[in-house]
Structures are given as C-alpha cells and as structure tokens.
Design a protein around this nucleic acid. Structure first.
Lengths: 209, 209
DNA sequence: CACTGTAGTAATCGACTGATAACATGTCAA
DNA sequence: TTGACATGTTATCAGTCGATTACTACAGTG
C-alpha cells in the first residue's frame, strides 16, 4: 500500500533519450527532492542521478559541479515561489495576506521545494551559494514589500511566519500532533488553515521526501 | 588586530592533561562552533578535534560517534537557551518580551550556539537527532507559553521572530546592510534593538565562526 | 616504588564521493 | 549512407572521513 521508504525518492525513469533541456529540468526536480531531504552536503550526486534515472557522471557533466547544480536548484526554488506569489496577488485586498500565505504552504506539494528554501537560509557563510541565497531572499522581500504593498512591519511578520513554518516542517512537528502539547498547540492554534495542507504533504520521521 | 580567519576556529589549546569532564565540555564548546559554522554533515570529527586541541580519535572515543556528539551539542544549546530565558524572566511584565528577545540574540556571543539551534530545526527527518530537536523546541515553547505566560498567539509571534532572526543570521544579511534594500530594511526597521548586537557578533561571509 | 586506572596519541583501514576519461549509442542533415 | 554532433554509460581514481586498534604517558594510592 504505502511505498517503500527507500523507493520514495526514485522517480519514474523509463524515459530513453531526451533533449538536454528536458533532462536538465528532470534532474533539477529530482535534485530538489533529494537536496531538500538530505541537505546540500548530505546529498551525493549519485543519489540525485538515481532519483532522476540517469548515471552519476552525467549529472556532473550537465551541471559542471555539485555546487553549480545546487545553485540552480536554489534559484529555481525561489523563482517558483515568486511565481506562486504573483499568481496569488490578484483578488480582494483584505484576503491578500492569506492568499500569499497559502501560496507558500502550497509549495509543500512540490517535493523538496520548501526545505530547499529553508536550507538556503543557513548557507550565508558559503561565498557563492550564500550570494545566491541572499539574492533569492531579497527578491521575495521586495515582492511582498513593493508588489504586494505590505508595510515594513507586515512584511516582517509575513516572513517571520514563513520561517516558523519552515521550522515546523523541518522539525516534523506534525508527528507529535495530538501527543505533544507544544506540537499540538503550534499546529492547531497557530496554523489552523495550513494544518490540513501541512499534514497531508509532510513525510513522517525517517521517511525521505 | 583581527584574527586570521583560518585560526578563528582554533581555540587556545596549550592545556595538558585534563579531567575527562572538563575535556568533554571543552570539546562541546569547540563542536558547537564548528557544527554551527559547517552544519552537521559538513563537519568532520577532525575539525572538531583540532578546534578543541585534541586528536580526532579521542573525540570519537569520548562521545562514541559523531551523531552522539552532535546530539549532546544540540541538547547543550537548548539547555543554555532555556537558562538564558529563565535569567531574563524576572522584571517588569511589560518589558518581558523584549528581555526574552534580548536573551535570544545574546546567544550570538556564544559561538555557534544560534546556528546550531537553527540547524537543528531542519533535522526532523533524522530519527534520533530529530527526536532530540523536537524535544528541545518543545521545551522552549513550554517555557515561553507557561513559565513566561505568553498567550498562544504571543508565543507564536515570539518564535516566528526568532526563526526570522535565524534566517537573517544564517543568510549573513548583515553583509548587505547599507547596500541591499531588503537587507537594510529587514535589519534597520525590523530589528532596531538587535541590530547592534547582531552586527557586532556576526562573522562576515566566507569567514568561519 | 610498583600497581592500576585514566588521559591521550599515532597509525591505519574500509567505505564513500565528486570528478575525469574513455567509450558507446542514437539522431539528423546533406 | 555517412559524417558529425548530442546523449548517455562504464570504469576508475584520488581524496576524504568516521571509526578501530594498538600503543604511550601520566597521576594517584597503598
């Protein structure tokens, strides 16, 4: 019934020859899942390759280095999030914040996307990767502040909530829902609308993404 | 004047023979700095050993495995933070939130402490480490909610702000202060009181902790 | 002083990982 | 058909890392 944990990361990969452009995108999807599940250093290029259904050297050759692959993964994740925000912008102004929030939790549907973004916020010490992460974060901030028209404090609150969601997801607090008091409260009282979404998409402890 | 970047991680280590208890604590301090700077998987036991001024096998023997060492580092970090919160509790009730917030940013003075806590919130997928991280987070939540008497929503806001600080620190956004619009705003308008502290203690991009 | 436990190191190993080189196969235009 | 380029693999390597083993040195006690 439930798929074997070890096989969750493996995507369908019967595809034969493919255009380099399509293959790149396929690898980026797989890489997002794996990097999100195992962090940057914790991920091997071979795991990404097998998740994408290609050989390890081919992944390296297509992207140059593991670091360059990761940078593309980050940039793609921030770009997707910006797209989701942009799509959630039109509509009643008084519901704008909740629509944008839903756009964020909606990223949970794309495997690895949210943990990749969360992980990127801890890579500021890396010279090249950190630069990309700061640019991504700043682009989000600019969108919420300028395009969405939030005040400085509203923007702060919006991002703060997002970072708390990152922690809740990263900690797998959903596993303690109903048993742990803190977990139940943080999920139940603080994310009533996101709760369903989060619990539905979140993997259990020990399970890969 | 300023110490060489490569030597920042190296602590004074002229000490000769030492009691195992003292040596453990010394290694935990060093390990907190290194784990905080390079993440769990990104850190080698040899780096921890050299930062503590002992040999690599000795670190492994004292703590059993790298994972057990990391678990002790996390537990120690959460315990220290709880202590800091407890110390900040007494005083005027209307300034309680800002005192507790200052207690959090005060952790920046202990090298690696804050990034270790931030990093632990992304380790929920690891069976054993995740358990420890969830327990640590829950203990903090319980303290703020119960001992400090915050409402559910106040607690949520307090933790959300903390997670945003983690991101700001992890991204090294301070490096863009004055040049990047987003960075300047998030620091200047949103953390006016913490700004000094953060900028004073934060390493620059590329520098280890 | 000898004995015993504790603190500590040097040497080394097996497993892993990112990257490279060499080779193979498929596609398509002329 | 054939040449030429793009897609892809197998084999392999050099470096790294956590852990184990075996050994050394010191301190306190009777």
């Amino acid at each position: 019934m439930s798929p074997e944990a070890a096989e969750v990361l493996e995507s369908a990969a019967p595809a034969g020859r493919m255009s380099a452009t399509d293959r790149r995108e396929q690898i980026l999807v797989a890489a997002t899942a794996v990097f999100g599940a195992k962090t940057y250093v914790g991920t091997t290029t071979d795991e990404v390759a097998r998740a994408a259904g290609v050989s390890q050297p081919y992944v390296v050759r297509l992207f140059g280095t593991k670091q360059k692959l990761y940078i593309e993964v980050i940039q793609r994740a921030y770009a997707h999030l910006l797209d989701a925000f942009a799509a959630a912008l039109p509509g009643p102004v008084d519901e704008r914040a909740s629509r944008l929030g839903a756009a964020y939790t909606g990223l949970l549907a794309e495997r690895g996307m949210l943990p990749v973004i969360a992980g990127s916020t801890q890579m500021g010490g890396e010279t090249e990767i950190g630069q990309v992460a700061r640019e991504g974060f700043s682009s989000l901030w600019h969108f919420i502040r300028v395009d969405a028209g939030f005040s400085a404090d509203e923007t702060r609150g919006f991002f703060a909530t997002g970072m708390l969601i990152n922690a809740v997801v990263g900690l797998r607090l959903t596993d303690d829902y109903g048993t742990g008091v803190s977990a139940t409260e943080v999920l139940d009282e603080c994310f009533p609308d996101a709760l369903e979404k989060v619990r539905a998409f979140l993997p259990k402890v020990g399970e890969p993404w």
